[in-house]
Design a protein around this nucleic acid. Structure first.
Lengths: 187, 187
DNA sequence: ACGTAAATATGATCGTCATCATGTAAAAGT
DNA sequence: ACTTTTACATGATGACGATCATATTTACGT
């Protein structure tokens, strides 16, 4: 049955929302089109009215979720603490899309890669502005290095089987990034 | 046809070698059992004589490649430079198994997760020993933080579509880690 | 040398998708 | 109100891939 224009827009948004959660949680490959539609409260048939293919859904989901996720803009230390927390590690579905999806991007279409690249570019810029460093060169370096360490630590922590080591990776990286920021800003 | 014991052992090793390259290059999901066997010069039928399932192959491949890959033991700065080079970024198939496979581990069997955990544990220890810091606490922190940043940077750089930004992520992270090591050691 | 067990090869099977075809009902324009 | 779109549902279709069944050949113990 046909639905109203705004109903359709809501449906599309819901599809993107649930897709972004499912993809972050289980990876692109492990999530089927039918599963996404079902989670959005629809059936698989209507999918191709919204997107031309699963790849198209992936690209649109990335643009959607990366635009929504504008973390790191305010207090950098608070962001760092939350990012490298066990809570964030254990909540991939609702967590940072970069941490959950970057590694998979390598195998995706140019459109998906492009969406992720822009997301990373603005995230690094955002961190650069939130960081205390005075010198612009130091600030840029700290932004890139900190972001790499943050994303890397969450990915490592999620892979590790031993809770003690996993917690340690988060906490040591937090301390390491924190110290790096302080020291550069004090130089 | 049956082959000699040592021939079979060679075959098994070859399967693990090509599987590790294929998995690093394309991810676990995108590589089929038949593809691995073909790359090893065999046909798909013989596979289950060597491994009980694809999951079993994955777990064994991880143990195999993580045992072989004992990088970072000597000169840490040289290792850092090579790790964060465009050459390494562009050579996923022959590169660090951690950078290529950690993110996928989340979806794998307990055996695979366990193999990766042990690989990470020894890699962090190895880096800790190769780092100049005197204080043991600083050394541990630097080892974990540096490793997280290195792995994260390579993963980010491989995802990014724009060569300039990708190169920058590698180089800035290299400089950032380098500075972090120096500064802690000077403290 | 012989017989047996084992390592691969060839050829199913079975399930899971992505995607397409067609039906249906309700929204939107007239 | 009437017609025409159109959003979605239901039900194919066709590939691909993991795993299994069976045949073949040959190493290996005797």
């Amino acid at each position: 049955m046909k639905v109203s224009r705004e109903q359709m827009a809501e449906n599309r948004n819901r599809i993107l929302d649930v897709a972004s959660r499912l993809f972050r949680d289980k990876g692109f490959d492990a999530v089927s089109v039918a599963e996404v539609m079902k989670a959005a409260g629809l059936t698989h048939g209507g999918f191709y009215g919204h997107f031309s293919s699963k790849d198209d859904l992936i690209a649109n989901t990335l643009a959607h979720v990366l635009a929504a996720d504008a973390g790191g803009g305010g207090d950098f230390r608070a962001y760092l603490d939350a990012y490298l927390s066990p809570r964030h590690r254990d909540n991939a579905a609702g967590g940072c899309p970069t941490a959950g999806l970057v590694a998979d991007i390598r195998y995706q279409t140019p459109a998906a890669r492009s969406a992720m690249t822009e997301g990373l570019r603005s995230q690094i810029d955002r961190i650069g502005k939130a960081i205390p460093e005075v010198n612009a060169v130091d600030r840029r370096r700290a932004a890139v290095g900190s972001w790499a360490a943050m994303v890397g630590a969450v990915i490592l922590a999620r892979a590790i089987d031993d809770p003690t080591l996993s917690d340690e990776v988060l906490e040591q990286t937090r301390a390491w990034v924190d110290a790096g920021i302080s020291q550069v800003s004090a130089s």
